[in-house]
Design a protein around this nucleic acid. Structure first.
Lengths: 105, 105
DNA sequence: TATATATGCAACTTTTGAGTTGCGCAAATG
DNA sequence: CATTTGCGCAACTCAAAAGTTGCATATATA
């Protein structure tokens, strides 16, 4: 099943993983040590993050270092862009003013 | 149960609702007409979006117009900020160059 | 006031997802 | 070459979330 980035960041553990690997690449074991859960549980989160390409594996012998893929994270930024205009213009007072005008019509 | 915004945008229907109300405030019925599901199902999504304050209700007689809350959406922007530096510096070529240098050590 | 409309809430079913245990494989180590 | 270590995959359990039907409430309308 193809994962999407919105679902990927919905989980707090996965967000924590992203924060960690954004600082430096880590192996699954290294990540698991940070969280109070089994390595396999973390491995599943890694799988989700990898499938939607938010992290990239780098094989080194029997270890796998997962790197943060900043480019993919930008997709959020693009999605957010459609709302950016709203929060630049949607001041509370202005919003109320417009509502008042609309009601007077 | 308190909802969080990450989980709120994880659902595609809720993202669609946000896109709609960002353009103009809508009633639950108006939203339901846009999607292939029952009004109650949409109503549940509205509840989630409302609980985490991504939308705000405006009562008008028996109708409820839900407005987009741009301010709340900014919380994503703040979360994304921690990664912004990464995608400004993590050019693919530069990344590869650094890896090469590291391996030569 | 009887009726239709707009909405929210509760109970229920079905699906999804997080976490576990168990296993197999490949690379390092003695 | 046997053993340990790091990892992924599959089967299973359990909890949460998505969607349904049914019902209660409040506002509009005839």
């Amino acid at each position: 099943m193809k994962q999407d980035i919105f679902q990927a960041i919905a989980d707090p553990t996965r967000r924590a993983i992203l924060t960690l690997v954004a600082i430096q690449a880590l192996t699954p074991n290294a990540m698991a040590e940070k969280f109070d859960m089994t390595r396999q549980a973390v491995s599943k989160h890694i799988k989700v993050l990898h499938e939607c390409e938010l992290i990239k594996p780098e094989h080194r012998g029997r270890e796998i270092y997962y790197h943060f893929n900043a480019k993919k994270m930008q997709e959020f930024d693009h999605w957010l862009a459609q709302f950016r205009q709203s929060w630049e213009t949607q001041f509370n007072q202005l919003d109320q003013l417009l509502s008042t005008i609309k009601e007077q019509k």
